[in-house]
Design a protein around this nucleic acid. Structure first.
Lengths: 255, 255
DNA sequence: CTTATACGTCCATATTATGGACATTCATTC
DNA sequence: GAATGAATGTCCATAATATGGACGTATAAG
């Protein structure tokens, strides 16, 4: 395997092996690793031993290999320096500038989404939401976008557990209807929320995908109903471009 | 540098460099890395280039190096397979068995702690808490333990923002008193909560530390007041042993 | 303009990583 | 229980790689 830098071929091989373990659907066994990696037995043993020595992988009781806790502590540090908010900042600013409306970034917390960033529009009439605001999954743009990016079975299981509270007079409280909506969101890649979460406010939402294609966060563009005068494309096109930008920085590679 | 396994010296060197970047108080510059690593210039360049090629580090605009987003996605996967709940399970069971009382594991979420695991005692009278329950930082054992493990400045800043609500008639609502309590917790390494969060329930709490010595989670042993008959040591000694066990698995190394 | 420092790369060779061969352990079959 | 095959694990001669002294370029300071 050709390393990108001369003199790092062995390091690249080892990290490649780590990536294979990371990408496996379930912790792989030795024969499985030998097959998917194409490495010879002594080399495979040695590279696994070196990853284990550094805590990057661990061998389970059943001889299978999984990612190690050292990665978690490294990543906590990485997040402190480089969390999704920082990663997303420029793209969110750009989205706000292009749409002219308020943009939110939200992450999941149990069955809600929490706004962790907000880039406000420059209009006089603005959103009352603040960072830290929790919004329900069933009625908010970011929540429905997140559900729509989840694995269908997982999304359905979560929908069955949601408290389908009536937030506004427009809020849908029927789970079957929500399932159908989420199905459409999954196909379209974004959602249009028509005052289900806040009377007089509509929004477009989409989910940010991580390296494994799973939703990591969601973004919305929120618009007072009276100012919602431009075409859907005016909001959706830059929203999806923003999502692609951030998802890519997070390691997502569309197949 | 002697590698733990023959044939992995280069990989060990590269990971050692990654660890130095991880442990630096601020993203280090090239001259700083050269000094602390002891590597020659060509070798340093090459190893940095290989880490960068794999996304494990990134060079900032000001030429300094920080941990890369690839670590975040690897760690998300690692957490899915090996999260703190799994890591802590055996130790929590052991703590419950030794103390005979209900044990909680909680992680922070903004200014609260959320129970993510609960090992119930085998007595007839049990705690009403459930997984997912949020408890305030100022009044709960896990909350105060967490505050006590934080950096003093950060803890103080957070204390100033807390909603010092009166949860029970025993709840302290004075920030200055809370600061003094947290100072004592920091010194003792654990907290004794006397019905501040739930009338009729006392508990002992301590924080789990991560690889950098920062709190990652907290544990409490909850006891109905009428059953709180044994010595403090009966609860505290196994609690601290449990904490040490889990913190070590998380990569914490006491200095 | 000169000098010093910082940043960056080449390539001969010292050193390491490799895998064919072999060893040990375990499971299966007779 | 013995024989056989498969799985797991390691050795070490040598093919291949990683290294750092030497050199080059860019930038900053005087």
């Amino acid at each position: 395997m050709k390393a990108p830098v001369q003199g790092t071929q062995s390091f690249s091989r080892t990290i490649h092996l780590l990536n294979l373990i990371s990408q496996a659907k379930a912790p792989p066994s030795l024969p499985q690793l030998k097959e998917i990696s194409g490495l010879t037995r002594p080399t495979l043993y040695r590279l696994l031993a070196s990853l284990e020595a550094e805590g990057l992988i661990e061998q389970r009781g059943d001889q299978r290999y999984q990612l190690g806790v050292r990665l978690v502590s490294l990543a906590r540090k990485a997040l402190a320096e480089n969390d999704i908010r920082s990663l997303a900042k420029d793209a969110l600013l750009h989205l706000r500038n292009q749409t002219g409306e308020t943009v939110h970034l939200a992450v999941p917390s149990r069955d809600e989404l929490i706004y962790i960033d907000k880039i406000e529009c420059e209009e006089t009439v603005r959103m009352a939401s603040t960072i830290g605001t929790r919004v329900p999954m069933h009625s908010s743009g970011v929540g429905k976008a997140y559900l729509g990016a989840m694995n269908p079975e997982e999304a359905e299981a979560l929908i069955q557990q949601l408290d389908m509270a009536k937030i506004t007079s427009f809020t849908n409280t029927d789970r079957t209807v929500l399932s159908a909506v989420i199905h459409k969101v999954r196909e379209a890649g974004y959602v249009f929320d028509d005052q289900e979460n806040e009377e007089g406010i509509v929004c477009y939402g989409a989910a940010i995908l991580d390296e494994m294609g799973k939703p990591a966060a969601a973004i919305s563009v929120s618009i007072p109903l009276y100012r919602h005068t431009k075409s859907e494309e005016h909001y959706v096109k830059p929203l999806l471009a923003c999502i692609a930008n951030i998802s890519q920085r997070l390691g997502y590679r569309p197949s």
